[in-house]
Amino acid sequence: MTPELESFPSDSADLADGARLYRDVFNEPPWNDEWTLETARTRLSQLVETPGHRGYAASIDGDLAGLVIGTQEEWDTESKYYVRELCVDSTHQRRGIATALMDRLAADLRRAGVESIYLLTLRDAPARTFYEERGFDLEDGTALLSRRIESSDST
């Protein structure tokens, strides 16, 4: 079944549906996160309120089945798009929905003059294979660094 693709969000109800999808997908393996509807809605709201936001939703028979969301950013020599989130309902995975979303995104970005797409994913997650099969490469010379903010940190 071919998904119907449209901009995300197209109305305020989309954020509620998107939050449910996001929570359900990322609370399952391999992510095993602890999203609530409230925190998922806040996350998606922050992303759609970011300048340069662009997102798409995939629906099957009127039900939200997947979404991709991120931001277009200007860099020193080119315009890039940062995929912040891509998720597909577990009952619809491996049916081409994520591929359809990424293809639509890439086509629209190409028309907008964006030269490249980048993203972060877990090194050992199945998502990495999905992206690599679609032409994404692990970047040499880059590292994701993070630091916990401890209660002893003060200004």
Rank of each mutant, 00 (worst) to 15 (best):
S12L: 13
S12T: 14
S12H: 12
A13W: 00
D14G: 10
L15A: 12
L15N: 11
D17C: 10
A19C: 06
A19Q: 05
R20W: 04
L21T: 04
Y22K: 13
Y22Q: 14
Y22P: 09
R23A: 11
R23L: 08
D24P: 05
D24S: 12
D24E: 14
V25Y: 01
V25T: 10
V25G: 05
F26V: 05
F26H: 04
F26K: 09
N27G: 12
E28M: 13
E28H: 09
E28N: 14
E28F: 02
P29G: 08
P30T: 07
W31N: 05
D33I: 00
D33G: 15
E34M: 09
E34T: 14
E34G: 10
W35L: 15
W35M: 13
T36R: 11
E38I: 06
T39A: 11
T39F: 01
T39L: 09
R41F: 00
T42G: 06
T42P: 00
R43K: 15
S45Q: 14
Q46M: 07
Q46Y: 00
L47F: 07
V48Q: 05
V48E: 00
E49I: 03
P51S: 07
P51A: 09
P51F: 11
G52H: 13
H53I: 03
R54M: 12
G55Y: 02
Y56M: 01
Y56L: 08
Y56F: 15
A57N: 06
A58T: 03
A58L: 07
A58F: 11
S59L: 12
S59Y: 15
S59A: 13
I60K: 14
D61T: 00
D61V: 00
G62Y: 13
D63L: 10
D63E: 13
L64G: 02
L64E: 06
G66H: 06
G66T: 09
G66P: 09
G66Y: 11
G66F: 09
G66K: 01
L67Y: 05
V68F: 01
V68Y: 02
I69D: 04
